[in-house]
């Protein structure tokens, strides 16, 4: 459309046309029949970082050490002359010495002067490099979002499937499920926004409000890499849930003492050894059957490449966790 307007204007008056060409935001050159530059607008000068005096009258394909000597562009422009056709939106990808890799949509049209039958070629460049980058980025974001949604759904489904319905009321099931989901999402939030998180922060977050003044932590600052944050959170979430039901968090006097050390005996694989010890709670006896919570604690530790030992001491549960960090 723009090209049509230009074509009409160029026919009606050179001065007026020159004004229009200069006003155009896209780079434009007008070539004569020998492909020498007869006009270049300001946008062209600016975009390709050239000097107007250096290019006028020069062969277009020799400009700037032949940076325009691109086979596909040459064929395109050459084909416009005999066919008298307009070529619209021809994509040219090229690594220009001065401005780097760029993608242009090139329009070319033959202009015939009514008076002398001389031929000119109007070439217009639309720089779509940024637009294409942006489109590619958007496409990536959309595909990444879809991927995460699928993943998230898979996790939710999996948690729901694995949360036992046996010997539970619907309300109990719902609370257990929501507790696990909340822990999962909080951990994913941490993992998505940080490369690592502090062990004590993860522990306190997983224990939550139940910890209050009854959770005592002692140990050095240890960074947990983000892929492991969820697993560590889950272990403490399940221990907390268990303590709230049967252990130290089920009475007001109960306390939980968590201590940890970093074992660097094998420097390439340092181990975090952590002890969760419940005190002043009700008398503890080993469970009659292993529930999913216990399985989850074991499975999660194993997934971290570590192990956990649950000691049902009558005075309170002790869990000893060893994981590589």
């Amino acid at each position: 459309m723009m090209l049509e307007d230009l074509y009409r204007l160029l026919k009606s008056g050179h001065v007026q046309a020159q004004g229009v060409v200069d006003t155009m935001t896209q780079p434009i050159v007008v070539l004569d029949q020998n492909f020498s530059v007869s006009t270049a607008n300001n946008a062209f000068i600016r975009t390709f970082k050239v000097n107007r005096d250096d290019i006028l009258g020069e062969s277009f394909f020799r400009l700037g050490d032949g940076q325009w000597n691109i086979a596909e562009l040459k064929n395109l422009i050459a084909s416009v002359i005999p066919k008298a056709a307009a070529v619209i939106g021809f994509e040219v990808k090229h690594d220009f010495p001065t401005i780097g890799p760029r993608t242009f949509l090139v329009d070319a049209r033959r202009l015939i002067h009514p008076n002398d039958n001389g031929t000119n070629i109007l070439v217009l460049f639309d720089d779509v490099t940024d637009r294409q980058h942006h489109d590619a980025e958007m496409e990536f974001i959309v595909s990444e979002t879809r991927h995460r949604m699928n993943n998230l759904f898979a996790v939710v489904r999996s948690v729901a499937m694995q949360t036992s319905v046996e010997d539970r009321t619907a309300v109990e099931y719902r609370e257990t499920l929501l507790g696990r989901l909340a822990t999962t999402f909080r951990a994913q939030e941490i993992a998505a926004t940080n490369d690592a998180a502090d062990f004590e922060d993860i522990l306190r977050l997983a224990v939550g409000e139940l910890g209050g003044k009854r959770l005592f932590c002692e140990g050095p600052a240890i960074e947990i890499e983000s892929p492991k944050v969820l697993s560590v959170s889950l272990i403490f979430h399940e221990l907390t849930t268990n303590a709230a039901k049967y252990g130290a968090f089920s009475t007001s006097e109960g306390q939980v003492h968590v201590t940890w050390t970093l074992d660097t005996a094998s420097p390439e694989r340092p181990y975090l050894t952590c002890e969760w010890r419940e005190e002043n709670g009700p008398a503890v006896k080993p469970p009659e059957r292993k529930g999913y919570g216990t399985k989850l604690i074991n499975g999660t530790s194993a997934q971290l490449g570590g192990e956990v030992e649950l000691i049902y001491d009558p005075s309170g549960l002790t869990a000893v966790l060893k994981i590589p960090v």
Binding site: N151, A154, V155, S158, V159, M161, Q162, T184, P227, L230, S231, L234, K295, L296, G299, T300, Q303
Partner: peptide, 12 residues
Amino acid sequence: EDEVFLAMELET
């Protein structure tokens, strides 16, 4: 599998 729930589900 890095998602612990999914890993356990696959394992089971």
